[in-house]
Design a protein around this nucleic acid. Structure first.
Lengths: 333, 333
DNA sequence: TTGTAAGCGTTATCAT
DNA sequence: ATGATAACGCTTACAA
């Protein structure tokens, strides 16, 4: 089924078919002819070949999105948000998970497929060879770089809000857990938290600052270490909800009651945060919104009309009070 | 950067470049020439345009995969598994989430993009217009149809294993919750469960068979209804883990202790099953394996060498004993 | 208003 | 062993 077939069926030339069906604005086609073509296309069930179109127009109307791991619900949401807006704009979405294949390689492959742009989420952009991204349309999610446009959430604000909440509850002995890798967002969450504490005259000591992978397993381990301390903290902020879930698990295993003995605040507000018991107090980061915004920004850029409105200020994060925080236990007499 | 540029740089014709770089087996190229071409390509950072290749070869080396919702961790895993094997085979993966746009429409779009095949997961294939799938390479995940090849898990086996476990613990008053829609897999899980009970002389009465969406919210609601019964069940099997998580939540809210007062078995073994407290006893369904297998089957089909080995028997499911099941409470005297 | 024709960047068939 | 050349299915001047 090609445009030629439709043309033959409608008794017109192939280019007329193209003119009609591609909705080219500067195409003056007789209404009668247009009808015939559309009818013929419908009858034959004609669908244009987007590879051919892409070849001549030099754009594929497809976006690539690369994430480090689809398992992480945060990235799943980013992808989901991006997919939604891309889909609604008629764009295809090529998904690349850099679990097995390095991100740079994925980007090269996407570019071979002539994607019009690439969304990078959770990918350490700085570590990628320049050539991979050279003159490509790139939007980076949640990792501000000077080099590429990006969309981000207010990461320091997230840490700050967690600190303020814990502080206002009366906690003074606070801990943080986060990954060792230099991920911008995690670093900023940490910084916001630590700074807010310091401003309140409540410094965090190094044994209370745990490094572990930003996963449930990592949170579990880090919590175990915290619990083994002479003087465990009464409050904890985790770099993401996954870690918080792990911490929760470790507490359950150790018989530590949350929130009466220990308050825990996560970050992201993944769906599961609402589904565990006790429900996780956290800071909501609009993952789906980030993905959607990234896609929107990319699409605007492609149309050459990125007004800067989208890449502007970071998306707001919002403190969500649930069941894992409470005032610290009274000191044993 | 096109093949022509490389040709010019290497002092050969464009077709020679293609011959060399595409690794065409029946290409006899002088070693010296080959070297020159490869070197030129490297220097210029040449990457073939896959749209052009796809146009002439009439295959895009891309797969489409459509899922009902990326939020559902089960489908996320399916996608992840499929993406992995597709990626390793050099195939691109076009992702389509039928949240906003109907699955049939998605399939049409994917076909416009000339995907070589489509994986349908969690999509009600029977309800799709025939034309959407007509002479396309399709693999259906976990929903056997006579019309298309598919990969499936042993859904009745899953229900059966849940029943056997609960029965062996001594439960006799059992409930089931699952979605009302006629999804094959959920139906089979239910059937396996109910049949195994019946065989054990332990019929399930209709108030103990709850219909609700296969989500956490659905499970929560269904559990509330179950708890409101005169004589609540002592054991419960949920059509999937999401529902089980909802049930767990409802129990926590109602102060019903799991597993001492009520035993719960989920199905799927999503990652979260391990992370809630108490950890969810469930039946493991290899979601990632299903996705991987679906992709493998599709790739084999494309190469025209589907030996039938993959579409054969359903993938085994495995009972996973964790913390949400125990013997029923002793009868009140 | 519509048709002709020149590409888009490849692959693949043929001469040479 | 290599180079012309004809597709692939479409868009887009330009002609008619």
């Amino acid at each position: 089924m090609t445009g030629h077939d439709v043309a033959a069926h409608a008794g017109v030339s192939q280019s007329t078919v193209s003119l009609v069906l591609s909705g080219n604005p500067k195409a003056r086609i007789a209404d009668e002819t247009r009808e015939r073509v559309i009818e013929a296309a419908r009858e034959l069930g004609y669908r244009p070949n987007l590879l051919a179109r892409g070849l001549v127009q030099r754009r594929s109307f497809a976006l690539g999105i690369v994430v480090p791991e689809l398992d992480n619900p945060f990235f799943t949401e980013v992808v989901s948000g991006a997919e939604r807006v891309a889909g609604e704009a008629g764009y295809g979405v090529l998904l690349a998970d850099s679990g097995q294949i390095p991100a740079a390689e994925h980007v090269m492959r996407l570019r071979e497929r002539q994607v019009d742009g690439v969304i990078l989420a959770g990918v350490p952009v700085e570590t990628m060879p320049d050539e991979a991204l050279a003159d490509a349309n790139v939007v980076v999610v949640d990792e501000p770089t000077g080099r590429y446009p990006g969309v981000a959430s207010d990461a320091t604000g997230a840490g700050r809000k967690a600190a303020e909440h814990l502080l206002s509850l009366g906690h003074r002995s606070l801990a943080f857990m986060g990954p060792a890798d230099p991920s911008y967002t995690f670093r900023m969450r940490e910084r916001g938290f630590v700074q807010a504490l310091r401003e309140a005259g409540c410094a965090i000591t190094s044994p209370l600052l745990r490094r572990a992978p930003a996963s449930v397993a990592g949170g579990d381990r880090a919590m175990a270490a915290l619990l083994a301390l002479e003087v465990p903290p009464t409050g904890l902020f985790c770099a993401n909800d996954l870690m918080a879930l792990g911490a929760l698990k470790a507490c359950a295993a150790a018989g530590v009651r949350v929130p009466s003995e220990l308050s825990i605040v996560g970050c992201d507000d993944i769906e599961m945060a609402r589904y565990v018991t006790p429900e996780l107090t956290t800071v909501m980061v609009p993952a789906r919104g980030l993905g959607a915004r990234a896609a929107r920004l990319l699409l605007l850029t492609l149309d050459g009309r990125d007004t800067g409105a989208l890449s502007g200020k970071p998306l707001e994060v919002e403190f969500v009070s649930r069941q894992t925080t409470a005032p610290p236990p009274r000191r044993e007499p």
